[in-house]
């Protein structure tokens, strides 16, 4: 029958992942984000006038916020493709509207399914492994929320305590942690085959080139589009390698 043949190779858990119930379950938390934005916005607008900001300044700030958000949000949308492909529409939408970014959510999901020996993109991922990915993203994301919820009032003191000497180390430790983690992620991909390796290398190379151009010519939009472009080109190279040379290991 036609409908059996047209069944996609999408893993079975995708029915659950794209179900109405999951869409519904994402509504409350996304509402909190919008609610907070509305509360803060109202108060900032009225207190802004109090402290001497003009209507024009407030409007210009608002307008710039809207305009500047459109480009990056579309770029996030392209990045969301990878997340939709692996965890479904609702969870992808929620994770990228609340807390997350593609750079956190993908690895967090990968760490979830890897508990069962799977890797994102495997077609036989079980519903349990998928649920582990959801838990992994959710619990992993709470760290930022808790620190910002209870740490923000103390941030100023903490910053000063860290002192000058260690101030310089903060960005270095952050970048080193990121490099170590992504080195681990990408070596796992390199181990899976030639097309994956080509995709890793291309993604990195395109990113380097685009960021270099953006820096030299001061092109902000290029920075916003760099990751989206790098992943699309990396994808194309991966496919090209798959259909031409296949894999060597």
């Amino acid at each position: 029958m036609v409908w059996i043949e047209s069944l996609p190779v999408v893993p079975a858990y995708m029915d659950v992942a794209n179900s109405r119930w999951l869409w519904l379950s994402t509504v409350p938390v996304v509402s909190v984000v919008l609610l907070q934005a509305a509360i803060f916005f109202r108060r900032a607008w009225s207190d802004g006038k109090e402290i001497g900001l003009s209507d024009d300044q407030l409007k210009s700030g608002f307008k710039t916020g809207v305009i500047s958000a459109i480009g990056p949000a579309i770029a996030v949308l392209v990045g969301m493709l990878a997340l939709i492909a692996t965890v479904g529409g609702p969870v992808a939408w929620m994770r990228l509207s609340v807390i997350g970014s593609v750079a956190f959510e993908l690895p967090a999901a990968e760490l979830g399914v890897s508990q069962f020996g799977y890797s994102l993109g495997d077609s036989d991922i079980t519903e349990t492994a998928y649920a582990t990915a959801v838990w992994s993203m959710t619990l992993g994301g709470t760290g930022w929320l808790l620190v910002s919820a209870f740490g923000t009032p103390h941030m100023e003191k903490a910053r000063q305590k860290l002192g000058e000497g260690k101030d310089a180390l903060i960005p270095i430790i952050g970048a080193a942690a990121m490099l170590g983690a992504f080195a681990y992620f990408l070596t796992g991909e390199v181990a899976s085959g030639t097309p994956e390796t080509g995709s890793v290398a291309t993604g990195g190379l395109v990113m380097l080139i685009l960021l270099q151009i953006a820096d030299n010519k001061e092109i902000q939009w290029l920075r916003e589009w760099a990751l989206g472009t790098a992943m699309m080109v990396g994808l194309l190279v991966g496919v090209a390698l798959q259909v031409t040379v296949g894999t060597w290991w």
């Binding site: 992504f182 993604g203 760099a226 991966g238």
Partner: peptide
């Protein structure tokens, strides 16, 4: 192949 490219790009 999208995910490996993201990993490569962020690493870069």
């Amino acid at each position: 192949y999208l995910v490996p490219a993201v990993f490569g790009a962020i690493f870069a």
